[in-house]
Design a protein around this nucleic acid. Structure first.
Length: 819
RNA sequence: GCCGGGGUGGCGAAACGGUAAACGCAGGGGACUUAAAAUCCCCCGGGCUUCGGCCCUUGUGGGUUCAAAUCCCACCCCCGGCACCA
């Protein structure tokens, strides 16, 4: 006879025992042998965390649990599920935090990683700790540097000048997100722009392919859309405007436009202030003003420059060019609303049909002709605002009367005959700047030789170790703290042996995280970044789950790197993630969780109090996984009670009955198996949990003692959500080893889930007047017969005429009558 | 402004175009208890009721349909992302 006291559900005790066993037995870890020859490999990936000093937050646990439930379900189906985890510990967050608390990141990070590891183990994820990665270890970033070299050799890395945000007070380069409305987020000093030579990856060369491949991917629609917008494909044409009256002759001004049809309405040109032709075009009487304007714009930071201002500013250069369509002489202005890094850095201004140009022309008194007339308007209908839509061309010479679409094509053809136009597809996507003038990252593996120029570090010399530098505070030089460490950056050229200087910038964190999924299966190998055979076996990733905050950058960079490695012959696939699902956001009591609000949920104390299984179950229950949910402190009581009742149902004092299952319970069981098996792979966790709760309610109805056959499948179905209690109960049911090592997922019998009676709603004119119990699939006649006998139906039929009957078998009978 | 995702009981949420509110939280009542906790049972959108029922209710307004939370059109609000992209 079992003692009730000692057999009470004690989550801490159960979870500790099973976590120890998993480790002892190697339940979740892959040996070299198993990694090389799995029978049914399934790579289950989740976005690895940045190990902050605060520890895991609920958002992390929510995401990881959702992914873990998916992995465990696949495993119960008999697949070999590889579920790795790692740490994305380089980067500005770690570095800034280290500066703030005055501890060196090399001392800080290991502690954070250890704490995260402890928490991740406690939550009960199915992680293969033998294949964990930490991006800050030399045996990882050695291969990050190797990756840079491959792109460099493949001609996909180039060095060029680009503007960065500079805070003159903090004396540091700032990332765009550290600039808040033109001010440094730390000291509120106005941020300036500096031009620095930096390394870029030519992701824009892949724009078309990155866009095109999206169609083939099984990804969350919102994520695909975000990438589509980011890539920003637009079709149009490049038009050439000859510059007039400048000696010696300068090149034609090139503009990109999506509306070549409106070229007859281009009454002036606008160049970006930093456009290379500004100097040549500016007349002597305008030079002082132009220079002054360019200086003002240069003082603005990159972010403020891109903010929509209330009013347009700009100055006239004194120069003119010829509109190739009208032959008219039109003025050239410069204005900050034209961006150097989009299109050609110059536009033809069509104030009649572009809102920004209209605003500018209005401010500076420039002419605003109409060249497009929609619907009921004519060439002479006045414009009181820009009309950017489609219509019929007017005031456009021989193109008058054409609609804007065919007119555009005709004009491009006409101008191209004179070499003044060509069709062009333009992308918003920019090249990826990977240089960071910071300390906490992998040094970019390049040396600058006085003789040979930039020379890649030989692969055999990798890693270029990041030296321990006590003073890693950025200074006003605008270059990395590593530039102050002479004994580190002084080196010799690997080609000529002469004196050389190391690149002192480090690379972007997104480069670390852009390939980590390639490393996991090969973690620990020191002969290659990723083993070709193992990579072929496990990749691409079968399912990737993560937050939509990385919808654009991380996912796009990962796709680009994979594509580039494919083209360079290192991979035989070009898309890394076959399936991607974005999880939703967790809020608390309707408000976003944040430290400043003081409403952050501390997972450790909740797990200590209720156990990881209850916490996991609650997180998966509180809302649809892909939409997120509202964390309410009291809400966990439901799952807590459920697990207690589950425990008490399987571990009863009198022992389980071994009798045949009750027919009604069995039917509910098969219905539950059907629903859970269908919804679980679709990540519809909240309704799966509800179904399991419903089933347990039926099993325990009126205090009945369940049979083994009734509860055993329930234990298996709860296992993805609550692995510890499932293992314990499975074990107590007499099974050896781990529940996850068998293929124990239950199957259902379609016949057994059929109800023997169904409730059919009887409506009169669409309103429910009665319900009838009938055997499933009865004929309309029988149902009608039964319905007529219902007094509350009959009284509506008495003095009415039956006009129509709609019968949906097993669901409803609608009688349409009129009086 | 543009692109996503949402608006359903006191709350978190369910609902192949077919009985709106499953599952759970909170709340109320009861059982057990000296008491409390735990546990178990019952009630729980609103109004009316002759206790048979009837009417109203899924952000707002229209529409399609025998039937709309669900489909279509217009609009309002909330959350997330992007934002002078020519």
């Amino acid at each position: 006879m079992a003692d009730q006291e000692t057999d009470r559900y004690d989550p801490g005790e159960v979870e500790g025992r099973w976590q120890r066993r998993w480790e002892e037995w190697g339940t979740n870890t892959f040996s070299e042998q198993r990694l090389r020859s799995p029978t049914d490999p399934y790579y289950n990936l989740m976005m690895f965390p940045y190990p902050s000093a605060e520890g895991l937050h609920v958002g992390n646990i929510y995401a990881f649990t959702g992914a873990d439930v998916h992995g465990r379900y696949q495993r119960l189906q008999g697949r070999d599920v590889f579920e790795p985890i790692g740490f994305d510990a380089f980067g500005i967050h770690s570095e800034n935090f280290a500066l703030k608390v005055g501890v060196h990141p090399m001392d800080l990070i290991p502690g954070n990683v250890a704490n995260f590891t402890r928490q991740l183990r406690r939550v009960g994820g199915m992680f293969d700790w033998n294949h964990a990665v930490d991006t800050t270890t030399p045996d990882y970033y050695r291969w990050t540097q190797w990756l840079f070299l491959q792109l460099f050799k493949g001609g996909l890395a180039e060095r060029k000048e680009a503007p960065v945000n500079w805070c003159p007070s903090c004396k540091t380069v700032l990332a765009n997100e550290q600039v808040v409305s033109g001010l440094c987020e730390r000291c509120d000093t106005p941020v300036e722009q500096r031009r620095i030579a930096q390394w870029f990856f030519k992701i824009s060369a892949y724009a078309e392919r990155l866009l095109e491949n999206l169609k083939t991917l099984d990804w969350s629609e919102s994520t695909k859309k975000a990438q589509e917008n980011w890539i920003g494909r637009s079709e149009g044409a490049v038009l050439r405007f000859p510059v007039l009256g400048v000696e010696p002759d300068v090149a034609d001004l090139e503009v990109f436009t999506t509306r070549p049809d409106t070229v007859f309405g281009a009454t002036y040109m606008v160049l970006a202030p930093e456009h290379p032709l500004v100097d040549a075009i500016t007349s002597s009487d305008r030079r002082a003003e132009v220079e002054e304007y360019r200086r003002t714009v240069a003082r603005m930071d990159v972010v403020a420059r891109r903010k929509v201002e209330q009013s347009k500013t700009g100055v006239f250069t004194g120069g003119h060019c010829e509109n190739p369509a009208t032959g008219e002489r039109i003025p050239i202005w410069i204005a900050d609303y034209v961006l150097m890094d989009y299109g050609t850095g110059a536009i033809m201004a069509v104030p009649g049909h572009d809102e920004r140009d209209f605003e500018f022309a209005t401010a500076f008194g420039l002419p605003i002709p109409r060249v497009v007339a929609p619907g009921d308007s004519t060439a002479r209908t006045p414009l009181d605002e820009a009309y950017p839509g489609e219509g019929i061309l007017v005031n456009s010479g021989r193109f008058d009367g054409m609609d804007t679409r065919e007119g555009g094509r005709a004009i491009v053809t006409w101008l191209s005959e004179r070499g003044l136009a060509e069709a062009r597809v333009n992308f918003r996507l920019h090249d990826w700047c990977i240089s960071r003038q910071r300390y906490w990252g992998p040094p970019i593996p390049i040396v600058y030789c006085d003789e040979c120029g930039p020379v890649p570090v030989p692969e055999d010399d990798l890693p270029v170790l990041l030296p321990r530098v006590e003073d890693f505070q950025p200074d006003d030089s605008g270059v990395s703290p590593l530039a102050r460490v002479e004994e580190w950056y002084r080196t010799t050229c690997s080609e000529c042996g002469g004196t050389a200087r190391r690149e002192t910038d480090v690379s972007d964190t997104f480069l670390d995280s852009g390939w980590y999924f390639l490393r996991y299966p090969s973690a620990g190998r020191d002969e290659a970044a990723f083993d070709p055979e193992v990579t072929r076996t496990w990749l691409p990733v079968d399912c990737y789950i993560g937050g939509n905050e990385h919808a654009v950058l991380h996912l796009l960079y990962s796709r680009f790197l994979t594509m580039a490695l494919h083209d360079l012959g290192h991979l035989d696939f070009e898309e890394p993630f076959t399936k991607f699902r974005a999880h939703g956001l967790i809020v608390r009591e309707g408000a976003k969780m944040s430290k400043s609000r003081g409403n952050v949920v501390i997972p450790d104390s909740i797990i200590e109090r209720y156990g990881a299984d209850s916490f996991r179950l609650y997180l998966m229950f509180l809302g649809p996984f892909e939409e997120g949910g509202d964390y309410r402190d009291q809400g966990i009581q439901g799952p807590v009670g459920f697990l207690k009742r589950l425990w008490n149902a399987v571990v009863p004092v009198d022992g389980l009955r071994d009798a045949a299952p009750d027919v009604a319970v069995e039917r509910k069981l098969h219905q539950t198996i059907e629903q859970v098996s269908r919804q679980l792979p679709d990540l519809q966790y909240n309704t799966c949990v509800a179904a399991l709760m419903e089933y347990l309610n039926v099993v325990r109805a009126e205090g009945r003692t369940p049979t083994r056959a009734e509860v055993e499948p329930l234990v298996v179905m709860i296992a993805p959500f609550c692995p510890h209690i499932a293992e314990e109960l499975w074990n107590r049911l007499g099974h050896e080893g781990s529940i996850f090592d068998g293929t124990s997922w239950p199957s259902f019998d379609p016949e057994k889930l059929q109800e023997e009676a169904v409730t059919v709603a009887v409506q009169v004119n669409g309103r429910v007047r009665a319900t009838i119990e009938v055997p499933p699939g009865v004929s309309e006649e029988v149902a009608m017969d039964r319905a007529r006998k219902e007094p509350n139906v009959a009284r509506y039929l008495d003095d009415a005429q039956l006009r129509r009957v709609i019968y949906v078998p097993d669901r409803l009978l609608n009688l349409v009558v009129s009086t």
